[in-house]
Each structure stands twice: as C-alpha cells, then as structure tokens.
Amino acid sequence: MIIGYSGEGSNDAFVIEALQEMWCPEARVEVAQWRGATGSRRKHEIRKACIELFEKNASLIIFFTDSNNRDYKIVKRNESEWIPDNYRAMTIYAVADRNIECWIVADKEKAKKEMGINKKQLEGDPVKFVNKHFGSYRDSDKKRKIKEFVKSSDMRPENSTTRKVRKAVKYSLTGVAWNEEEKVHRRADSANTERSA
C-alpha cells in the first residue's frame, strides 16, 4: 500500500512517517513534490500533488499543514476546497491546531522527562523546545530522533484494535490541551489522525 503525503515542513513528514511505521508498517509513504516555497501557491500545488500521488498509485492521500496563528477549522475548510472533486474520496486534509510540534509533545509526561520541559513551558509555543531538543534541520539524525520519540510516546497503540488506538490517541492529544475550547479542537483532529492511520 502506498500512502501519498504532502506536507509543509520536515517535522510534519517525520511525524507522518512515524505514525505510518507504527500503524501501517507494510505501507510506504510517497511524498509529493512541491514547486516553490511550501507555504505559497497552495491552491495550485494541492491540485498537482493529488494528480502526482494518484499517478504514483497512492491508495490514500494525506495533506498535512499547520494552522499556526489561524483558526484550524477555517484553514481546513478553506484549503480542503482546493482538492479536486475526483480525488476527494481518497484524500484526508489534516490541519494541526497551532503546529505539528504541539503534537510531538502530546505526551507531556514524556516531554517533561526527556526534553526537560514542564507543563507551564508547554503552554507557550513548543517549537523552540522541539528544535532545541531534536536539532536543526541540518542535523541528519533529527528524523530518526523525532520518529523514535513519536513512536515511543503515548500516541502508540499498544494493542492494535481500533478502540484502543482511538483511546490512546485521544488521551495523548487531549493531554496537551490548554483549555476546554482546545480540547474540542484536538479531539476533532484526532479523528482525522485515526482515519489516516
């Protein structure tokens, strides 16, 4: 099985690959090319990535992007409209509330233990802690480190039944929520993650 993927940054790709290795070890992730900066020309590139990944025999296409300072629901609604109708059925458009780094530190106990950051620090932007801990993009070992971290966090389904996966994902994702409103957001996103898995 080939999982097509198009994302915004290297950390996003590492997380997707870690999830794939955990949940679909028999699958292969095919990353779509992106012409130009990943933040720009999204409308055109999403369309072309769909064609590319379909032509590369992907069974499923995952778009993954950070919402950053925007409301993730609005980002998702606006950008998923750019997926051509004939690829919609095989496409998941996932938007991380804030950014993927929030997901990496979803297991706050692990984050506290390994990265030495406490809950209060997590309430801010975790990007700087993640980059400091795993190294810059120039660090060739960064991919392995992030993948191992994600795999060994509480996001991992211990027994691969759908129910337990859902429970594990919900637990880990709601664990980093900062307030009640965000809890709702993360639960909504976790459903997407489960489907992509």
Binding site: Q33, K48, E52, E55
Partner: peptide, 10 residues
C-alpha cells in the same frame, strides 16, 4: 512538471 514530479516515466 511531470518529470519534476516523477510521473513522466512511471
């Protein structure tokens, strides 16, 4: 662009 995306000679 097909060449760039690796779908020219699939």
């Amino acid at each position: 662009e097909m060449h760039f995306r690796g779908i020219l000679g699939k």
